[in-house]
Design a binder for these strands. Structure first.
Lengths: 129, 129
DNA sequence: TCTCCTATCATTAGATC
DNA sequence: AGATCTAATGATAGGAG
């Protein structure tokens, strides 16, 4: 009780943007920041009337995603333009997303539905026998 | 000059999370918040050693994406699990991503590279003649 | 569209439960 | 793995250039 004065809350401490080595801390930060990111992605989609998709792949094989779909969207492929601001290759992430959808059954049907028009051919090394 | 006192800066005003109707304001907010989102996605990828992909589709046909790839990643499909926290269907966004990649030439080759193992079959209504 | 400014709101690291 | 609290950093709306 009397220790409360000594147990000062530290508040938001500045952190360098480098990999967090401590497993527990890294996991906690991931959980918190992913939620924050998702919240902001959701807000962006509503405020600015756009679709957003968010995909996460962790090295230990965990995978999660989020997306917010604009209800005002009008799809007109013929007008599509691309504004490329990527720094790394999104294809790598999406490729695994597709592979995952192809490899696993279950919930995957949801993912495959729009992709099923594409005849999947397992890439070398990813054959599941 | 003397007006400076009256021209007080308003600072960060709270906004409801509803579609911004004013075109200029919506575009400005999109630009700012997308940058913010990308920065946070990047930080998350570094801090927590994960891959992140971010895809944006606007109703007027604009499209952009971002992704950060972990350099420590080890791909082991057999261990994949899924933690599904989506609120809308990410497939819709990714489907269009794939369609876009298939429909347009150019920069698209980058995107198609990992997807080219999938034999694309144009869905009805999306044939480009 | 981007940058700068600044007041203010929002997120979050660390600790604790 | 969550929820809560606090103090501090971070993000950003509006205005101006």
């Amino acid at each position: 009780m009397g220790d409360d004065i000594n147990k000062r809350k530290t508040g938001h401490v500045k952190r360098q943007v480098v990999r967090i080595e401590n497993d527990a801390k890294r996991q906690l930060t991931f959980s918190r920041r992913r939620n924050g990111l998702i919240k902001k992605a959701y807000e962006l989609s509503v405020l600015c009337n756009i679709d957003v998709a968010l995909v996460f792949h962790s090295p230990d094989g965990h995978f999660s995603h989020f997306s917010a779909k604009s209800r005002f969207m009008t799809l007109s492929l013929s007008l599509y333009k691309s504004i490329c601001i990527h720094t790394y290759r999104i294809e790598d992430v999406l490729y695994r997303f597709v592979c995952l959808g192809h490899d696993k059954g279950r919930y995957i049907q949801r993912i495959l539905t729009p992709l099923q028009r594409y005849k999947a051919i397992s890439p070398p090394g990813l054959m599941t026998a």
